[in-house]
Every structure is written in C-alpha cells, then in structure tokens.
Amino acid sequence: MSEAVKQSPGDAPAESKPGEVSENHKKYWQKNIKLVLWLLVVWFLFGCVLSILFVEELNKFSIGGFPLGFWISQQGTILVFIGLIFIYAKSLQKLDKEFGVEDDGSDTMGGHE
C-alpha cells in the first residue's frame, strides 16, 4: 500500500505554481495521510498478520470456548474494522474543522432535484 500513498515527485512544491496549493491545504493533507497510514497499519495487523500469518501461534491460547486466533479471524477483526472507520470519520471531521475545509453541502452539482 505504501507506493499508493507516497507523494510522487509531481507533488514537490517547485512544480506547483505559487498560490495554487496553500500552506493550510498542504498541512491538512499531510495530517490526513499520516492518520490514514496509522489506521492502515492496524488494518493490516488484524486483517493479515494476526488472522492469517500468526493464527496457529495464537490458537494455542483460548478465549472462552474459542481458540484465540480463530476468534480474531472470525469475529475480532470485523469489530476492529468497524472501529477503524469510526476513528477515521471522527478524526477527519475534527481535522476538517481545524483547517476550515469542511464540506457544508453547498457544492453539490447543479441538479434538477
């Protein structure tokens, strides 16, 4: 995933005309990327590492009537995923406000309804 979000050379400040990308916007975008990367680390940890790569080791422990690895892969991971999106939506809502970029809904396409 890291190639996908790494800033490409075209994003270098020298490339953009002055005033095109404000400092405010640049900072907002960097914060956004940083948050998303952290959340994706947790996503990968649960979705792939604990549920698949190390499931056998985790299955040596149990939680109630479940082998631990089995529980993480069939229940826990889904709950973590829901939590991740919640944190993302909540944090971005705050970030939008902090940088004054929130979408007030005034920018919908010219429509007929």
Binding site: W43, G47, V55, S73, Q74, T77, F81, Y88
Partner: peptide
C-alpha cells in the same frame, strides 16, 4: 477456519473504501 478469508476480505475492503476512495470520489 479457512472460511475466515471471506469474512475478513469482504469487510476489510470497506476500511480501504472509507479511507482511500469514498470521500474523494464523492468530492
């Protein structure tokens, strides 16, 4: 156990959608 791949695969995709695609495509 192997059935977990459907559970993880078909829910994990929404994390990607939420953070990498949906808000930008809406914009």
């Amino acid at each position: 156990y192997t059935g977990s791949m459907y559970l993880i695969g078909w829910t994990g995709g929404y994390v990607l959608l939420a953070m990498l695609l949906a808000p930008y495509l809406r914009k």
